[in-house]
Amino acid sequence: MQPTQPVWIVDGTRTPFGKFGGSLRELSVIDMAKQTLESLLARTRWRTDGIDELIVGMAMIEGGLMVPARQLAYAAGLPETLPTLTIDRACCSGMAAVGLGVRAIGAGARSALAIGAESMSQTPRLLHETRWGSKRGDLTVEDLLMLRNPLEGGVSIARSVGVEAQARGIGREEQDNWALQSHERYFKALAEGYFQDEVSAVATPNGIVEVDEQPRADTSIEKLSRLTPVYGGPTVTAGNAPGLNDGAVALMLAGEQALSDHAATPLAKVHSYLQTASTPTSSVYLPGVAIGRLIEEAGLSAADVSVIEINEAFAATAVVSTKALAGGDFALERELASRTNVNGGAVALGHPTGASGARLVLTAARQLRRSGGRWAVAAICGGFGQTDAVLIEAAQ
Results as ranks from 00 to 15, higher is better:
residue 86 T to W: 00
residue 100 L to F: 12
residue 113 L to C: 07
residue 91 C to F: 02
residue 124 P to E: 09
residue 85 L to Q: 14
residue 90 A to R: 05
residue 59 A to G: 12
residue 50 G to L: 09
residue 68 P to M: 08
residue 144 L to C: 09
residue 89 R to M: 08
residue 103 R to M: 10
residue 52 D to Q: 12
residue 98 V to D: 02
residue 136 R to N: 06
residue 81 T to F: 05
residue 84 T to A: 14
residue 70 R to K: 14
residue 102 V to L: 08
residue 88 D to C: 11
residue 133 G to W: 12
residue 64 G to S: 10
residue 96 A to E: 10
residue 129 E to P: 04
residue 137 G to Q: 09
residue 62 E to D: 10
residue 82 L to P: 13
residue 143 D to R: 03
residue 95 M to C: 08
residue 135 K to H: 11
residue 123 T to G: 04
residue 124 P to A: 08
residue 152 E to P: 00
residue 128 H to V: 08
residue 109 A to F: 01
residue 125 R to S: 06
residue 75 A to K: 11
residue 139 L to P: 00
residue 62 E to W: 00
residue 65 L to P: 02
residue 150 P to S: 07
residue 46 W to R: 06
residue 72 L to D: 08
residue 87 I to L: 15
residue 81 T to P: 03
residue 154 G to I: 03
residue 84 T to I: 04
residue 101 G to S: 05
residue 45 R to Y: 05
residue 44 T to Q: 03
residue 97 A to K: 01
residue 56 V to D: 03
residue 113 L to Q: 07
residue 151 L to W: 11
residue 85 L to W: 01
residue 131 R to M: 07
residue 147 L to C: 09
residue 149 N to L: 02
residue 92 C to D: 15
residue 110 R to I: 06
residue 46 W to F: 10
residue 47 R to N: 13
residue 88 D to L: 00
residue 143 D to N: 15
residue 83 P to E: 09
residue 137 G to S: 10
residue 55 I to K: 01
residue 152 E to K: 14
residue 114 A to E: 03
residue 63 G to P: 04
residue 124 P to K: 01
residue 134 S to N: 14
residue 62 E to L: 01
residue 97 A to S: 14
residue 98 V to G: 02
residue 122 Q to D: 04
residue 74 Y to P: 00
residue 56 V to Y: 01
residue 110 R to S: 15
residue 144 L to N: 11
residue 96 A to M: 08
residue 63 G to L: 03
residue 77 G to Y: 03
residue 96 A to F: 01
residue 82 L to C: 08
residue 119 S to V: 09
residue 54 L to I: 13
residue 135 K to C: 07
residue 151 L to S: 12
residue 126 L to C: 06
